[in-house]
Design a binder for these strands. Structure first.
Length: 311
DNA sequence: AAGACGAAAGTGGTTGA
DNA sequence: TCAACAACTTTCGTCTT
């Protein structure tokens, strides 16, 4: 990274590294982060924003009752008092028996509130991770909420035990994307987090099994919108791509083939046919498959569907 | 010079014994 | 648990525009 990130850069300005204007505040870390290249532009935001994100109205009520926002890392700091188990007061005098039952009740409640604050703390951590991951992916709110719901279900069922909070959150994000018909690859997830594809996949399968989620196999059609957007292509190209893919599905050319490769190849063909041509390289960059795969698929499709593509 | 092409060898995940 | 297998990637030399 370049060394001048501490200069006075407003988050309304451009990223000094890649020039993108897509900078976003990351409340959970107190940073301004470039959404394109990941550069941390500024640290230490003056306003750390709300401690909590509300994922549904019920949760909002629960979280909103509290006073001013506090950084979750400071949760509990200086606020809790411990009550010794010895029956002595602050001066070391023994406490009269008539007050003992009162002290006992205090201890009991302290024990209870400790337990609840521990679980709330881990939820806070989870939602911080969720917020970070989903802003890196530019996920719509509905998907974030869905991932949040999945995580809470997983937490209720004690599925986090023995796993890191982070990997479970990422797995729920992966699941939520697929449920919403906007699948991301495990590679994408592992690239923006510190977890490996293996671990995310394993945790994902575990969560799906334990929560009894009904997952369907991703269709190539699910990828079209995103790729069209990323390549700034028109609506006609999108329509054409979908048309080609539907034909391919009808002719059963899709089984056993990777959905991304199929989507990429169809998009390539459609872009040429519509006169808004993108190179195989450009498409392979956004689709994250190689040009070779795009070539193989598109050769196959144009031959079997009888679609002539003149380069 | 850039893009497209395709052969050949390598990689990681799935499947079935 | 292991080997076979198909899809996909990497690499690289060649052809086309």
């Amino acid at each position: 990274m370049n060394g001048n990130k501490k200069q006075d850069i407003e988050y309304t300005k451009k990223c000094p590294q890649c020039g993108s204007i897509n900078l976003a505040k990351d409340y959970s870390r107190g940073e301004i982060v470039c959404q394109k290249c990941g550069l941390v532009v500024t640290e230490d935001l003056a306003d750390h924003g709300p401690e909590w994100r509300a994922f549904d109205s019920e949760q909002h009520k629960k979280k909103a009752r509290a006073g001013p926002p506090v950084k979750y890392t400071l949760h509990d700091k200086g606020l809790s008092t411990s009550i010794s188990w010895k029956n002595r007061d602050a001066y070391g005098r023994s406490i009269p028996t008539k007050n003992r039952s009162q002290i006992y009740r205090l201890r009991k409640w302290q024990r209870r509130t400790r337990i609840s604050s521990a679980s709330e703390r881990s939820l806070a951590e989870a939602f911080a991770v969720l917020s970070r991951v989903s802003s890196r992916l530019n996920l719509p709110r509905t998907i974030r909420e869905r991932a949040g719901m999945l995580y809470r279900k997983a937490a209720q069922k004690n599925l986090i035990r023995g796993r890191s909070v982070e990997v479970v959150v990422i797995a729920t994000v992966y699941a939520a994307c697929r449920l919403a018909g906007m699948p991301r690859t495990l590679d994408e997830l592992s690239k923006i987090t510190s977890m490996s594809r293996r671990d995310i996949g394993r945790t994902y399968r575990f969560v799906v099994r334990e929560l009894g989620l009904k997952m369907s196999v991703p269709s190539p059609l699910d990828y079209v919108s995103r790729f069209v957007n990323d390549l700034k292509l028109g609506l006609d190209v999108k329509k054409k791509t979908v048309e080609i893919l539907k034909q391919a599905i009808d002719e059963e050319l899709t089984s056993g083939r990777g959905p991304i490769g199929l989507a990429a190849a169809s998009l390539y063909m459609a872009s040429v046919l519509c006169g808004e041509r993108r190179t195989q390289k450009e498409i392979s960059d956004v689709a994250r498959v190689t040009e070779v795969t795009i070539r193989n698929r598109y050769k196959e499709l144009s031959k079997k569907l009888g679609i002539k593509v003149n380069i």
